[in-house]
């Protein structure tokens, strides 16, 4: 199995030598790269969901598409093109401000324009069609040593930044009006967040591709949030779900010769579906504490009687 063979394989095929496949250099690259991406994506996911930025995350991946195809066209590293366009696009979306409906429209328009540009660059670089497919659908098996170094640096930046920003960023994400009054630099944190998101997406696009990015950046965190709202537990579960999807997805791709992107996305979706199923009862149940016992305050203000 080689990177290109994965995309070319037309039929489902059990590989009896899957243990050897797992030990190959490109598989080890894939595991290392996938692990780095899963850690960053799992941690960022909570903020993406809580800040209701899922659409922006999706859009950033598409904005990265012309960056990647443009880089292919010019013979530059894909990671560079992705990073430049994702960070630039993120800052642009940030400039549109926080007005919900306006931001959605602006984001969607930029998304479409970027995808159009991506198609143009891709067709100009037609000689390298499989590289374009890799951008759209991801190919973890093609991760190079150079990309690994970049992934390592990006993940380190994301993890360290989140460790420093954690509390104020949570405050600004769940309760922006009070956070601002309390002196939290809400707008600056928003810009910092979008840059971190762009770095994460730059990596994630190379694992699952522009079109499937949601599965790594949003789905594991969403599943974790269904199960618990304890911040530390959500972070651990979210990273664990992302890691499980990537690792098991790679093993599955070794056993059955199909693209790992498919298995990674499939597993992430499965985990999410299970989290929905097991919490169904709880979400359907009435509000807790709505019974009188939970309202110890006097019903009538003192002094009115």
């Amino acid at each position: 199995m080689t990177p290109t063979a994965v995309l070319a394989a037309p039929r489902v095929e059990f590989q009896s030598n899957w243990l050897q496949v797992l030990q190959t250099g490109f598989m080890q690259h894939a595991f290392l790269g996938g692990t780095l991406v899963a850690v960053a994506a799992g941690l960022m996911g909570w903020f993406v969901v809580t800040r209701q930025n899922a659409f922006a995350a999706h859009a950033l991946a598409h904005i990265g598409f012309p960056g990647a195809t443009g880089a292919i066209l010019l013979g530059l590293p894909v990671t560079l093109g992705l990073a430049v366009f994702c960070v630039g696009g993120g800052l642009l979306i940030g400039l549109f401000g926080s007005r919900g409906a306006e931001r959605e429209v602006a984001t969607g328009t930029v998304l479409a324009a970027a995808t159009g540009l991506g198609v143009l660059f891709a067709s100009l670089a037609a000689a390298n069609a499989s590289a374009t497919t890799n951008v759209l659908f991801g190919n973890l098996l093609a991760v190079s040593t150079g990309q690994l170094a970049v992934f390592g640096a990006f993940t380190a930046v994301v993890v360290l930044a989140l460790a420093v920003l954690a509390r104020p960023l949570v405050f600004a994400s769940v309760d922006p009006a009070v956070a601002e009054a309390r002196g939290v630099p809400v707008r600056a944190l928003g810009v910092a967040f979008v840059v971190l998101l762009a770095l994460t997406i730059t990596m994630a696009v190379q694992v699952v591709g522009t079109l499937l990015l949601f599965a790594l950046v949003v789905t594991p965190a969403a599943a974790a949030l269904r199960l618990t709202a304890r911040p530390a537990v959500v972070a651990v579960l979210s990273v664990a779900f992302a890691l499980a999807s990537v690792w098991l997805g790679l093993v599955a791709a070794a056993v059955i010769d199909l693209p790992p992107s498919f298995f990674i996305v499939g597993l992430a979706t499965l985990i999410w579906a299970v989290s929905l199923a097991v919490t169904r009862e709880r979400y359907r149940a009435g509000r807790p504490g709505d019974h009188p016992a939970a309202a110890p305050l006097p019903l009538v203000p003192a002094g009115t009687s």
Partner: peptide
Amino acid sequence: SALSDAIRARDLVTLGLTGTRFGL
């Protein structure tokens, strides 16, 4: 309307004390 599904009452109150502190 600003509240999402992501935060518990206790954590929200805690942010009133610690939400401005950087670092873990």
